[in-house]
């Protein structure tokens, strides 16, 4: 059966709500409209206005009330409509959602899932195309995952909702319409395990979310050049599966990290640090980064110059192999 990422996530929400009546889905336009990307389509009509509801347009309010609902005993799934709209909720996410369990010495448990459509590539411009994952990864107390395939969209959202820890699900919005031939419900390895999506021998491409597809395309193109790329999908950004990264780099001796987020203090920096700590003598070349630039997100007509693509990855592959 052909399933898009958006459909897979919708089904995950549906199944979680059907299994546990403490699961609530809320956010801006998620009810009657079914979300601006239709990811919550049909939930309100099936489960009623108390289980899936539209909130006022106030992101701090969405996360702050999710915290209160979780303390009460609900299992909230909050949607942030776009990546750039999470910033008004920053304080609630960072100072409370992430930290209340620790602050309460383990007395408070906050099983909150925050879904954030993120990243560019849909011609939507600033505020609607950003990649803020480093903020969440840098915040102790949060778990951060990003599906790169429809199967993972289903499995990761189910896992996030089942988790007693707060989980941020970074959903690659440009891949919402990506299709896979799968039967739902699917199972997948736990999100904290990175997966080799394509085996290769020359260079490890470390990626996640929207760049999984791009990296696979790059690996395909590289084959014509006679280069064998291994594509490692991190899946979980926090925690990060260091062992899997290191194991792959030990095989290939080279690594390139790919993400849309700007380069400085992006996840590539963390991956590079971990690789040089754990696999220094296996490295044939420095860890390189194919990323967005350290500029604000560009106007829609220029995003093609800004976002990492197959060519940017292949240029770095060539550089890596030239060492």
């Amino acid at each position: 059966m052909t399933v898009t990422l958006a459909q897979a996530i919708n089904r995950a929400l549906t199944d979680a709500m059907a299994e546990d009546d403490r699961v609530l889905v809320f956010g801006e336009d998620v009810g009657r409209l079914g979300g601006v990307f239709r990811v919550t389509d049909g939930l309100q009509s099936r489960f009623g206005e108390q289980r899936c509801f539209d909130t006022p347009l106030a992101e701090s309010g969405i996360i702050g009330t999710a915290i209160g609902l979780a303390i009460y005993g609900y299992r909230p799934v909050a949607e942030m409509q776009f990546d750039g709209f999470t910033y008004p909720a920053f304080e609630q996410l960072v100072s409370h959602l992430a930290k209340l369990r620790n602050r309460s010495r383990g007395t408070l448990t906050l099983p909150v899932t925050v879904r954030i459509p993120y990243g560019g590539g849909i011609g939507a411009g600033e505020h609607h195309s950003e990649s803020p994952e480093s903020y969440w990864v840098h915040t102790a107390g949060l778990t951060v995952v990003s599906p790169g395939t429809p199967d993972d969209g289903y499995a990761m959202v189910r896992e996030a909702i089942a988790s007693d820890d707060p989980v941020i699900v970074m959903e690659p919005k440009r891949r919402y319409w990506m299709k896979a031939d799968i039967e739902l419900p699917v199972t997948a390895p736990p999100a904290h395990e990175a997966l080799v999506r394509r085996e290769g021998t020359d260079v490890t491409i470390v990626c996640y979310g929207p760049m999984v597809r791009t990296a696979l395309d790059a690996a395909e193109a590289a084959e014509e050049e006679g280069w064998s790329l291994e594509v490692l999908d991190l899946r979980s950004l926090s925690p990060m599966d260091t062992e899997a990264i290191v194991a792959s780099v030990q095989r290939t001796g080279r690594a390139i990290v790919v993400h849309e987020a700007g380069r400085s203090l992006g996840l590539g920096a963390e991956v590079a640090a971990r690789v040089q700590e754990a696999a220094f003598y296996h490295l044939e070349a420095p860890v390189l980064r194919a990323t967005g630039f350290d500029t604000p997100y560009p106007p829609a007509k220029l995003e093609g110059y800004w976002l990492p693509d197959v060519d940017r990855i292949l240029d770095l592959v060539e550089r890596s192999l030239a060492y």
């Binding site: 309010g61 702050g64 009330t65 999710a66 915290i67 209160g68 609902l69 009460y72 609630q92 409370h96």
Partner: peptide
């Protein structure tokens, strides 16, 4: 204030 509100919504 938001935590109190969310808690009250749950109630």
């Amino acid at each position: 204030a938001l935590h109190a509100t969310g808690f009250a919504m749950g109630a």
